[in-house]
């Protein structure tokens, strides 16, 4: 898969729109999820993800694979766009989780959906208690299943600092879930 991605990146750099389309289909969802958990707003997340890919397309010729994977580069673009967004608009009303859960419904088996929804709503509420930095690490670590080395590249932090950040985040989540009488 990595070989395929690196081929696609090379082709996209050379102006192959179809190759960029493939990269887009491969990476849209993780970038969208990352932005969604930062903005907590479905439409804003779609807009920012769309802009991130448009920026990436425009800057493809400048992308150099210097040990930073293409996906990490996309995360960095999306993260910077989120920061710009919050500088301009800090009063975005968080969307009702039910709106985007409707999209999840079709992606999970029916019998697992209601239990998953209950668990995830508890987690979503617990995540409100995390700082922005902690939420970024939690999303990349537990949802996107990235290694600390990969997270370090994306967030430009050292691995030890990330481990400490994640440890504190897990403690906050445990406490919050405990308050909600939710057992781990």
């Amino acid at each position: 898969m990595d070989r395929n991605i690196s081929d696609l990146v090379s082709s996209a750099k050379a102006g192959d729109k179809q190759a960029f389309g493939e990269l887009y289909r491969e990476y849209f969802a993780p970038i969208y999820r990352f932005v969604l958990f930062k903005t907590k707003h479905k439409e804003t997340a779609e807009d920012i993800t769309q802009t991130a890919f448009a920026r990436a397309l425009g800057a493809m010729s400048n992308y150099r694979d210097k040990g930073v994977p293409f996906l990490s580069w996309l995360y960095t673009i999306a993260r910077n766009l989120c920061l710009d967004h919050f500088k301009k608009k800090s009063d975005v009303v968080p969307a009702d989780p039910d709106i985007w859960w409707a999209e999840v419904e079709g992606n999970l088996p029916a019998d697992k959906f209601s239990q998953a929804k209950e668990t995830s709503e508890a987690l979503w509420r617990a995540m409100e208690a995390l700082s922005d930095e902690q939420r970024e690490v939690v999303v990349l670590r537990f949802i996107e299943e990235k290694s600390y080395a990969e997270i370090a590249q994306i967030l430009k932090k050292n691995e030890e600092a990330l481990r400490a950040l994640n440890y504190r985040a897990m403690k906050v989540l445990k406490d919050e879930l405990g308050i909600m009488n939710y057992e781990l």
Binding site: A29, T49, Q50, F53, A116, T119, S120, F142, E144, L184
Partner: peptide, 28 residues
């Protein structure tokens, strides 16, 4: 970490709809 990874698993099912995906690709 393993427990949390399992707990967060349903969030990995969050993907934009095909309609959104198509519309955004077209816009890009």
């Amino acid at each position: 970490e393993e427990k949390f990874t399992q707990l967060f698993a349903p969030f990995r099912a969050i993907t934009p709809s095909q309609e959104t995906l198509g519309r955004v690709l077209e816009t890009v």
